[in-house]
């Protein structure tokens, strides 16, 4: 059974239909990617799932509960966490304090949270940046910290919004390795990503959307061979990129 099920979401802003009957599912222990050309509605569906935008209709069901339009903080308390495309973080706090805030999502003990933060820092090899402020880091490290921040909240589902944007090739490899390991923790990963090579190598399942609508879905190989996908995707993306 899917831990997260997004059902028939519709959302319009200023007369413009942004999401049109969009549905998708995420399974625990799987990486599900959402791909589509620019303006397809990828970040918007993340905003809807994570409670930052209210859809006009449709439902977000998490762990068997209807959580549509619940407050973001509430959703995070329940185990649904996200990153942001434009890395925000808590700019002037240290990397460690960023992670401590996340760890406090599950415990009231600051000591316990610090212990968990240190363990996570160790695990992600962020030790050398521990006491630096998040803004002083390179973009690659910032993206890793962004993911660490989200993991520290102890999520069952993580939404990763373009965590590879702006990374160099070697950094992408590190991130791919890292994302691959997430399902081992029993986490359902939902990924929005432009980096197609990375998406193909890391995903168990891919959902293709275009103009806010479901276009196709399946395994990476299935999707890559779908003529509709190739047309929509390459048609617009290849000419722009």
């Amino acid at each position: 059974m899917s831990i997260l099920s997004v059902q028939n979401i519709n959302l319009a802003r200023g007369g413009l239909k942004i999401l049109d009957n969009l549905s998708l599912e995420a399974q625990a222990g799987h990486v599900t990617s959402v791909i589509g050309p620019n303006g397809a509605g990828k970040t918007t569906i993340f905003n809807v799932i994570s409670g930052f935008m209210r859809p006009d209709s449709g439902a977000v069901v998490y762990d068997g509960r209807n959580v549509t339009s619940m407050l973001p903080e509430k959703l995070c308390n329940m185990g649904l966490a996200r990153t942001f495309q434009r890395v925000r973080g808590l700019p002037s706090l240290s990397v460690r304090d960023n992670i401590v805030v996340g760890a406090l999502n599950r415990t009231s003990s600051v000591r316990q949270a610090k212990k968990e933060a240190d363990a996570l820092i160790e695990e992600l090899d962020l030790g050398e940046y521990r006491d630096q402020s998040a803004t002083s880091l390179s973009i690659g490290t910032r993206k890793i910290v962004e993911v660490a921040r989200v993991l520290s909240t102890g999520p069952n589902v993580v939404l990763l919004d373009e965590v590879m944007g702006g990374l160099g090739p070697s950094e992408v490899n590190i991130m791919v390795e890292f994302i691959r390991k997430l399902p081992e923790r029993g986490i359902a990963v939902l990924l929005v990503e432009h980096h197609m090579e990375a998406v193909m190598s890391v995903s168990d399942h891919i959902v293709v959307i275009n103009r806010g609508r479901n276009l196709a879905e399946g395994t990476p190989t299935e999707v890559a061979q779908d003529p509709g996908v190739i047309e929509a995707y390459l048609g617009s993306e290849a000419s722009n990129a």
Partner: peptide, 11 residues
């Protein structure tokens, strides 16, 4: 202003 500015995501 639209609510997308709140989330910082603009596709």
């Amino acid at each position: 202003s639209g609510d997308s500015a709140l989330v910082g995501g603009h596709e």
